[in-house]
Every structure is written in structure tokens, then in C-alpha cells.
Amino acid sequence: MEQHGLTLHETMEIHEMLNFKTICMTKSKMMQGLVFDQELKALLAKDVQQSMEAVKGLQGLLAKNQSH
């Protein structure tokens, strides 16, 4: 199939998602140092790991779009 870049509205959505995931990642990282419960801390740590992957992926999508 012919390879297109992202459409304008797609770019906006992906960008919004990037902002959202960035804030979530930052917040979960901060909260890790605040909570007492170690299971909750572990789940927050897992969220940070997943969010890191998500942010990198979103950055990749946006970067690929710019090169087109």
C-alpha cells in the first residue's frame, strides 16, 4: 500500500496523546516517592515503564511524519 504520512487531524491527536502521556509519566514517577503501599508503588513504576515506551512510540510517529 502507498505509504502516507499522518493527516493533519491525526498529527493533532498524536500530539495531544504525547502531552497526556508525558504528564502521566511525570506524575506517576513523582507519586512513586509519595505512596506508602509498596504494591501501589510497583504499579506506578509499571505505568512509568509503559508510558516511557508510549512516549517514545508517539515521538517516533511524529518524527516519521516530519520526514515525509
Binding site: G5, T7, E10, E13, I14, E16, M17, F20, L61
Partner: peptide
């Protein structure tokens, strides 16, 4: 919710 809403604005298979 954000993710589901974003999918409805998506055209490219990668995204």
C-alpha cells in the same frame, strides 16, 4: 477514553 477517541481520528495503519 482519549485513546479510543484518538483511534476514531486515525487514518494511517501505523498510528
Amino acid at each position: 477514553r482519549n485513546c479510543a477517541a484518538s483511534i476514531t481520528e486515525t487514518a494511517s495503519p501505523d498510528a
